[in-house]
């Protein structure tokens, strides 16, 4: 099986690849956004803790 055969998917390429593309985007966002948020929350809490501790 050649690469063009694989990509053409027996004539269903325009249905199959968009599905896999949307799937990849949805899954990527569901990992990337939580990771960014976790880092952001840790940074903010660290900042808050630092300012609290510098006061006392």
């Amino acid at each position: 099986m050649s690469l063009t055969d694989f990509l053409s998917m027996g004539g269903y390429a325009k249905y199959i690849w968009p599905v896999y593309g949307i799937c990849a985007v949805v899954l990527f966002l569901n990992i990337a956004l939580p990771i960014f948020r976790e880092r952001k929350v840790i940074r903010e809490l660290q900042k808050r803790l630092q300012s609290e501790e510098s006061k006392t």
Partner: peptide
Amino acid sequence: GLILAPADYQQGDSFRIMYVH
């Protein structure tokens, strides 16, 4: 799903959407 499985005898290659759906 995309390479090893053969095309469906009724739905052709379109059945591969199943692996996401």
